[in-house]
Design a protein around this nucleic acid. Sequence first.
RNA 1: GUCCCCAUCGUCCAGCGGUCAGGACGCGGCCCUUUCAAGGCCGAGACCCGGGUUCGAUUCCCGGUGGGGACGCCA
Length: 502
Amino acid sequence: MRVRFAPSPTGHLHVGNARTALFNWLLARGHGGTFILRIEDTDIERSTLESERGILADLRWMGLEWDEGPDVGGGHGPYRQSERLELYASHARELIEKRHAYYCFCSAETLEASRKLAMAEGRPPMYPGTCRELDPDESARRVAGGERAVVRFRVPDTGDVMFDDVVRGQVTFGMDVIGDFVLVRSDGRPAYNFAVVIDDALMHVTQVIRGEDHISNTPRQVLLYEAMGMEPPAFAHLSLVLGPDHAPLSKRHGATSVAEFRAKGYLPEALVNYLALIGWSPVAAAAAADLPPDDAGSELLPIDEMARRFSLDRVSHSAGVFDEAKLAWMNRHYMKQAAPERLAHECWTWLAERGWVTERTPDAQQFIASLMPIAAGSVDRLSEVADRVEFVFQWDAAAAAALVAADPGGRRVLEAFADEAAAGPLLDKEAFRAVMGRVKDRTGVKGKALFHPVRVALTAAESGPELDLAVPAIDRAAQLAASAGVRRVVSCHGRATAILNS
RNA sequence: GUCCCCAUCGUCCAGCGGUCAGGACGCGGCCCUUUCAAGGCCGAGACCCGGGUUCGAUUCCCGGUGGGGACGCCA
């Protein structure tokens, strides 16, 4: 089995394309096949080497290594279409000789006009066939004389083209809706439909897995295979990835590229796992494979396990909406799984942005890693870790106290806390818990509103005389906490959160 | 306009003639909790419409509607 992912380097790797790459990779890895990366850079106006590098980097970040490709080589290269021009030219010559293709001298303006007319008359806007019956020798002379021409494929006049789509079943197109399409542009570069066929054939690709937007190109390609006397590969068309409004996912929906999701702080395994779930169900695949039910029930799967379970006939027919909330949930899961050292590494840039860390010394890395358990698993993304650990680096006790002082509920909690705490020593966790329980009962306040004021008071206790407390309740609670010995256990970088916990 | 594809909770998937239509995310509630989260439990929430076929359709067929894609010297 040989599959390929063939992006054109005209921008960032879109998550929809990343999903296509992933499905190809999963199929290859699950079946001991070969995964090929081919760069479709025949559009010289838009292709850039920078995009190519970005796409390669994004694929590697996702963990999708390829066996053959522009940078790693392979036995069926080159792997950039711009380096295969001679191959296309020779096949084009052959098709012209066999009368499967012909030169067309029509101008872009003429063609545009006929397209418009066809639309207006309710006909499929396709090539009218103007140059179809030109004398081949005459055409050859005109081309030799320097006249600009494209090479068009001669589509049969009647009949149907059909192919068995692995995910959709049999698809049929009537010849009458397929116009004679361009194989070679007037500047000699191959057009998409021609280049893919030559490449897939020469690279011995056995299954072509690509986006649904290519489904109507497929009959043209099948025709080309037939004309060249070659066996077409199996085709599988994946439905598209949509935005929340059911329009194809685009910039106006927010992040769309792998690079953007990476920059937002998503872990690669989360993105990969999530993407696989749009249009594919590991649960059912597992059932089919007779796996233990509890194991089979989870959507959370490492990439290798997905590869093991992946199969094309379980791929959904309908388009899927990209749901960032679910991605975030998965990311949380993988952040909890990740080693603190790795998280520290991944979060570094965000912490550095705030000036909290500079050099990656072993000590600094170890310290940051020690902070990770506080944050990981309670935030959606790596970029949010900084906010989570902010108190370690900057905690304004006075500002916090002022905020609590302004809140009637907070003051009630502190009054109650001061009363209750005065009843006995507050030296251990159990005693503290008991006091907090009574405060909760007395005030009816719970959750964050209950603990935050107390936390502030404890911080005040730690801060000592340099914090001037204008609010009696806070002051009293703080003094009480200090005298009760709480201060002793208010330690570590955890100023507040880890109180009594350390 | 023409052709092609698609259609189960808000979203992603299960279902492949008889199910109390299942799970996950999200949402609501409760519990737990020394913040926020996380976690646990509970709950609300769907078969696009109309015809067939059948003893019986979410499931099969046809039509409609809706959504998407394609009709380039872009891929």
